[in-house]
Nucleic acid binder design. Structure first.
Lengths: 215, 215
DNA sequence: TGTACATCAGTGAACGCGCGTTCACTGATGTAC
DNA sequence: TGTACATCAGTGAACGCGCGTTCACTGATGTAC
């Protein structure tokens, strides 16, 4: 009788529905404070239904974090891939990519919803070794990704200050994570994009020649 | 019989003891996951004793956050005040201050323990309006503090790129918050100081004249 | 095409445990006269 | 200096509620012969 789903909609994937509801709640009030009961009520299933899809609450956390990491990686692939198509120069591609990232995060209806990795970082002891290792790998993956891009830039442009490539690689995720915290606390809408644009200016100043001497 | 406190120590202030224990636990696993029971066991008092000092769990959160904000403000006053004593030029004072901040955070035994404001940001709906407003004021306070410092710098040095003073002011807390998240996830020791040093390089590049023309 | 069995995607009652909070009470210290 | 009372800093038993998890069961769909 419940026909909230139109005939054109794909069959509602209960597992995905549970994860969507859970992610929203976890980002709002934390993992421990999000009860299975409230999830199943919102998803219109029974308690038992939840445990059919996830063996326990930790399995839900794992799935949430895994999905988030995959989505973020796909987003970075997409944005910086597109940026590179637009400009073959690695520095300009990076600057375009950061601009695209800022614009994308600006266009989200209610700002960035938050990062489940940061949420998990502040609820560390709740999770098993596997979850912590997944998070670590994700952050190291982003470090390596951006580090490689900065290395490519450094082959073409002489940096004006000595480079700490790991720190520079970490800076993208770091600035975004920090800005998300500020945005959540302030309740403003453009904090994240403004911080990314600051990072963009830094990259520009760090590599671009003082007065267009080289180019 | 329990004489862990030497005769030279001031009488153990139970309220402070509760807060120290609670802060550590909250930063490790979140507010909801930290039970009053575990706090009172660690503090060697009874449940009732806890409620003598805090009317409920939210009052503990409020006290924790208030204390954290005060401590952070005192730290900033101290560090950037000292930096200004060392160099009257606002840009150099800022650069010295950031260096001192990075060094200080490097010297902490186990890295930065975490920020209770960020922890609260990811457990938002657990807290009342008062707590959220306190956090907002703290972040805006830091924005204003550093914004004023950057304004002073901009009076003396022409920035090489257009300034977004609010975003620049936010960047100090933002970079630190983000770096704390990375450091927690990575389990490394120098992530926070490395990120602050990146911010320092940005400030240097943004304001310092290209080739010492002005000075 | 019909029947038997297996799998999928759940239902809903029941469990026991741990949580935040209340409350009557207590013993030590401080203050007034 | 002695006595009466108030305040401080707790104790510890009891409360009821909500939580994560288990489990026997079920009805719809898929597959084998």
């Amino acid at each position: 009788m419940d026909s909230r789903y139109s005939s054109m909609t794909v069959k509602p994937d209960t597992r995905t529905l549970i994860m969507d509801i859970a992610e929203k709640a976890v980002l709002e009030k934390g993992f421990e404070a999000t009860s299975i009961d409230e999830i199943v009520v919102a998803a219109h299933i029974s308690r038992g239904g939840f445990f059919y899809h996830f063996k326990d609450k930790n399995a839900l956390a794992r799935a949430l974090i895994e999905r988030y990491i995959d989505a973020e990686n796909a987003l970075f692939d997409d944005i910086f891939g597109r940026a590179r198509e637009l400009n073959d120069d690695p520095l300009h591609a990076m600057l375009i990519g950061l601009k695209l990232l800022a614009e994308m995060l600006d266009d989200l209806p209610n700002g960035h919803p938050g990062c489940v990795i940061a949420a998990a970082a502040y609820q560390d002891r709740l999770f098993d070794r596997g979850v912590r290792e997944m998070n670590r790998r994700a952050i190291l993956g982003w470090r390596a990704r951006f580090r490689a891009m900065f290395e490519e830039i450094a082959k073409v442009y002489t940096p004006r200050e000595p480079l700490d490539l790991n720190a520079l690689g970490d800076m993208v995720s770091g600035v975004v994570e920090g800005a998300i915290v500020l945005q959540r606390v302030l309740g403003e809408r453009q904090t994240v994009s403004a911080q990314i644009m600051q990072l963009r200016t830094y990259v520009k100043l760090l590599f671009a020649p003082p007065m267009q001497m080289d180019h």
